[in-house]
Structure formats: C-alpha cells, structure tokens
C-alpha cells in the first residue's frame, strides 16, 4: 500500500532530534528501523506530518558495559543484539528472545529501541526487557530521565515516552548468575508470538532462589507472571514444583481473543509454556 505524504527530517544529534520533535508536537513520529512504523503508514493507520529519522545519529548504536550494567544503544539492530558478545554473556535472555524476531531482513533493520517504543505486547523484546528489570533512558528537551521497564509500558502500543522524547539507551543489570530461556509459541516460523515466555531463574542446588517471568501477548502490555514468580521463590528445583507454580502463570493477565488464538487458549499456553521455559531456565529438562 501507499502511505500518505509526510515531511522528512534527518537530525545529526539527539538534541536536534528532540528539538524537531518538540516543535512538531503530536504531528511527528520518530523513525528508527521502520519495521513497525512503515507498515502502519502504508496501511494508512497513521498520518504523521513529519518523520524524524534518527537512524544516522552517531552514538545511539552499540553495546558497552558500565559496572554491573549492560548499556545498549536504542538504535542497536536486532541482529547486532543477537550476535553481541556482551549481550550474550550478561543478558543471554535478550539475545535469545531477539533471535526469534521475524526473519533476518527484519532483524537487520529493526532496532531494540523501536521494539520497546512501539510496545507491541506481542513483541519478543519487551517481555525479555521486562524480565531483565531493565531501565530505559529517554531524553527530552529538559534532558534525560530513566524509566524502569515495569513502568514503561502503559497500555496497548502506549509507553511512558512523551511525544518530544527519544529513547536513547536500555540499561540491563547483568544477569550472569541467572539461567534463562525464551519460549515462543507461533503459528508459523516467522510469525509474531501467540504467547511468549521470557524466564530467568536463579537456583542454588536443590532450590529455586528467585525467578522472573515476562509474558508476551498476554494483555495490552507485556506483563510479569507475578503469582508464578512468587510460587517459585524457594520452591524445589524439580519438575512437579515448577509445574504447579506454572499453573498460576496466567493469573492476573488479560489476553485478547483474536484471529490467532482465543483468550482461553492463550491462558492455557501461558501455563504450559511457562512450565517449559522455567524448566529450561532452571536446567531441569
């Protein structure tokens, strides 16, 4: 399909970008990899007057460490996230989840920042970032602020970002001591998740000390399976205990019924997939 016409700007700095966004207000849209925005424009579901292409701003792409924190630039592509050695060492869950996004073409263009700012609950990256208890750094006209992932996703395709703010960094506490697994259930090999489960588990020999479970597509935003996390805390590191904790994985979720699945089936999947993801993360398979 063919998008409606729009103005196009390509700022060279974050400040310049934020300035352009502030000036245009609600009429502007940030363009990163374009993998979510362009389909929306082509389907004529949105009619921004200005696209601010942040793709060439230096310094927003790449991964570094800062003490106990992994810092990922918002423009880092899915492909780079998957293959980055620092991500693989300190946040393997993110690499695993990102590796399931679409196909190589989309992964080369799409960015981590775009995935989070777009906030599609079916996305794989948001659930992983949520489970990793990341902080999202955004920059606006008044400078930078940091938003915990748990507060970032506010509603369906809605975030804590203001129209004149740019997401610049994702700060992930290193999770070296955690076992992890991303379990994605999709209807065809390159499709979005019907349900996805991002699990992190820390255990000492016989027990699960702590777990964090992020769910994709179980409501208007990515959510944590809190009841399941609580049931797992201190539980035996054994299949039965994990299975019974996973039975509460869908508690408190509000999944949609749509063409790919009914809410009821999604709840069922959340339980089965959580059990599988936690077992794998706890090295119990």
């Amino acid at each position: 399909m063919i998008p409606a016409s729009f103005e196009y700007a390509r700022p060279r700095t974050v400040e310049e970008a934020v300035g352009q966004l502030a000036l245009a207000g609600e009429e502007a849209k940030v363009l990163a990899g374009g993998q979510s925005l362009l389909p929306i424009l082509r389907m004529r579901l949105a009619f921004p007057e200005l696209l601010v292409d942040v793709g060439r701003i230096p310094g927003l792409r790449g991964v570094r460490t800062d003490g106990d924190t992994l810092v990922i630039g918002a423009l880092t592509s899915h492909h780079d996230v998957v293959h980055d050695p620092l991500v693989r060492r300190h946040a393997g869950l993110l690499a695993a989840a990102t590796a399931t996004v679409a196909d190589p073409a989309v992964r080369h263009r799409g960015t981590i920042g775009g995935s989070l700012a777009h906030a599609d609950p079916a996305g794989d990256v948001p659930a992983a970032v949520l489970a990793l208890d990341a902080e999202l750094v955004v920059q606006g006209p008044d400078g930078r602020r940091s938003v915990p992932a748990r507060e970032f996703f506010t509603d369906y395709l809605q975030t804590a970002l203001r129209p004149d703010e740019l997401l610049v960094e994702v700060r992930v506490p290193k999770a070296d001591a955690w076992g992890f697994h991303y379990e994605k259930f999709q209807l065809s090999a390159q499709a979005w998740a019907v349900v996805g489960v991002a699990a992190l588990v820390r255990r000492d020999d016989g027990r699960i000390v702590e777990s964090r479970v992020g769910l994709s597509n179980m409501g208007p935003t990515p959510v944590r399976a809190t009841a399941c996390e609580e049931a797992l805390a201190g539980a035996d590191a054994a299949p039965d205990a994990v299975a019974s904790a996973a039975d509460s994985a869908a508690e408190g979720t509000r999944p949609a019924s749509d063409l790919s699945a009914s809410a009821e089936y999604r709840e069922h999947l959340a339980r089965v997939l959580t059990r599988r993801a936690v077992l794998a993360a706890a090295d119990l398979t």
Partner: peptide, 9 residues
C-alpha cells in the same frame, strides 16, 4: 500477518 503462508522453515 494474519493469512499464514508457510515458508521453508
């Protein structure tokens, strides 16, 4: 996105 044409995978 909704009409699922399978691919090689």
């Amino acid at each position: 996105a909704d009409y699922l044409v399978p691919c090689a995978a």
